[in-house]
Amino acid sequence: MPDHQHVAGADAPLLEVDHVVVQFGGVTAVNEATFVAEAGTVTGLIGPNGAGKTTCFNVISGLQKPTRGKVRFRGRNVTGAPVHRRSKRGMGRTFQRLEAFGSLSVRDNVRVAHDIHRGLAGLVRPGAKDIDALLERVGISAYADERADSIPTGTARLLELARCLAGDPKLLLLDEPSSGLDETETDDFGDLLRDLAAEGRGILMVEHDMDLVMGVCDTIHVLDFGSIIASGAPGEIRRDPAVQRAYLGYSDEVPEHELAGAGVGVSAVEETRTDLVPVGAASDATTVIPAVGATTPEDVR
């Protein structure tokens, strides 16, 4: 049940994706996707593999031109604006396939982001911002002097977050930020996201760790075949039959007792968190999505 009743102008949401369509040849990757992300909240964008989540991110951040539709950011239409101008307006993003500056140290990665943020002045004189405090905040100060291409994947994702934060963005787009993090790290990461939202930032996150998504998101949008099939609070999403169908596949030929054994995802997800997603292992980003909450056979119908 989409809820986009909002008035334009002063109360305009931080980010509005308005009937965005992206077609690659004959394939529609994003189909009339419409959703919002509000300031001061964490918004989840979830959906099965290939549902169009990363394409949505690319459209929002300006790396992909939509075939149709609009993106509004802080009340202004930015659909045609180049990537860097959106960033200047307060949009930061991380990447599913890491884009850290491999030959710079972790500290320099963040420093360079800060310098870029300061514009021309930053290119002449080093900034005064406390870079180390930022590294401390996301929890990677132990790696400050390492080259960014030599750190574990999970750490590199946190580095990308720190790099965004150096520009003090109003909206953070996080693409699978927790993959590669272990259990404790994910918990800390969840706390950090809440903190960041409490500072008034909006966070839009594509994430497959349902514990994390259900735990920290205020609102969740579910994308399937490029369209938003459900929007709402975690509890609602968990119970939404359309979401259940999207995640569980559509065959109804499987006997119920099998599903009973199958619908357990969440408790077991933790085991996989220690897995490293390799840098550049494109297709390994294939994702099997954790079950939406603990499903019971009754739910799946």
Binding site: M210, L248, E258, A262, G263, V269, E271, T272, P290, T295
Partner: peptide, 28 residues
């Protein structure tokens, strides 16, 4: 498969039974 290893295998029904201990990553 999990963590770069095969952690369970067998008939579909068997596999489903062991899944609660292993991982299904959800998509049942």
């Amino acid at each position: 498969m999990s963590g770069g290893r095969i952690v369970a295998s067998g008939e579909p029904a068997e596999v489903l039974e062991t899944m609660s201990d292993v991982i299904l990553g959800g998509a049942a």
